[in-house]
């Protein structure tokens, strides 16, 4: 019984985290057709910025609850700044390149950003763990659970639903959908594609940064955290179907529960539970669960 509760909660918690780190990746791919390897670096930048900002905030002796405001601010400001800088500074010049070449370009960006992070923050670990302990834990049928972890589930749901509403119910969002369908026709119809692309990339980057910021209080922020995240995020979006937001949610749930179940029931399979799910899904539905079909080019 306790084990069931634990699997349910852990799966939900891990899925929420996976969704947070993967949703930006799928958004950017969906609109811009860029499979962004630098996503992992954005996540790392978020985590480091959060740790630094919280360190400064606490050493100023300000009230602890304000830390969450700081985290929100860091996520938005850093995410937008980094996203716009990369989009305007580099990617803008490269649109229209082959999709696969774009992967290589973002891989190059990833290498550059990884070292930049190291040059800025060094190799020692950073901590920002106070927010994680702030809400304490609650007892769920005998299992102590951090309230922070449950709030992260809430955050994932709010962001997911918010994104969906934005894409389907607002003007900008609908324009985005139009650009997804056909970039050239949209441009011909007067859609400001440049603006749409910049916005998408900034929002997608901010989402990666949110993932990093929200995770920072739980971990030791060390070099290499970005690399670990990329592969997980890729697995999630590949399962769900590249470019689909509901797909990312489903993919996160598949991967999250696969891992939680294996940790509790068969720990020896934990390492490749996620890859196994990915391989299975791809074998049945090659382009992921929620993929669009493409027209063939002639």
């Amino acid at each position: 019984m306790l084990k069931t509760i634990a699997i349910l909660l852990d799966g939900l918690n891990y899925s929420a985290w996976l969704f947070l780190v993967a949703v930006g990746l799928t958004l950017i791919y969906g609109v811009m057709r860029i499979l962004n390897i630098a996503h992992g670096a954005f996540y790392a930048i978020g985590a480091y910025s959060c740790a630094t900002a919280l360190g400064l905030y606490y050493s100023a002796g300000l009230p602890e609850a304000g830390a969450f405001l700081v985290m929100a601010l860091v996520a938005v400001v850093v995410g937008m700044l980094v996203g716009l800088a990369i989009e305007r500074g580099v990617l803008r010049h490269l649109y229209g390149q082959d999709e696969v070449l774009m992967v290589l370009i973002t891989y190059a960006l990833f290498l550059i950003l990884e070292d930049s992070v190291k040059l800025i923050w060094g190799v020692e670990s950073y901590f920002a763990f106070k927010p994680y302990a702030y809400f304490g834990f609650i007892d769920v049928g005998g299992l102590p659970y951090q309230v922070y972890d449950l709030l992260m589930v809430g955050l994932a749901v709010v962001l997911g639903v918010g994104l969906w509403i934005w894409l389907t119910r607002t003007r900008t969002g609908r324009l985005m959908t139009a650009v997804v369908a056909d970039r050239e026709i949209s441009a011909a119809m007067g859609v400001n594609v440049t603006f749409i692309f910049a916005t998408t990339f900034a929002v997608g980057t901010a989402l990666a940064v949110v993932g990093g910021v929200a995770t920072a209080p739980k971990i030791a922020v060390t070099p290499g955290i970005g690399v670990e995240v990329i592969i997980l995020a890729f697995a999630v979006v590949v399962i769900g179907g590249l470019g689909s937001i509901p797909g990312a949610a489903i993919g996160a749930l598949f991967a999250g529960y696969a891992r939680a179940a294996s940790v509790h029931l068969a720990p020896e399979f934990e390492l490749f539970a996620i890859y196994a799910v990915m391989a299975l899904v791809l074998a049945i539905r090659p382009h992921g669960l929620f993929a669009r079909t493409d027209g063939r080019k002639i």
Partner: peptide, 17 residues
């Protein structure tokens, strides 16, 4: 030793461009 990947990435971008 700390900027190796950075150099690599920059060269890669330059070659692509």
């Amino acid at each position: 030793p700390n900027a190796w990947q950075l150099i690599l990435g920059a060269v890669m971008l330059a070659v692509i461009l």
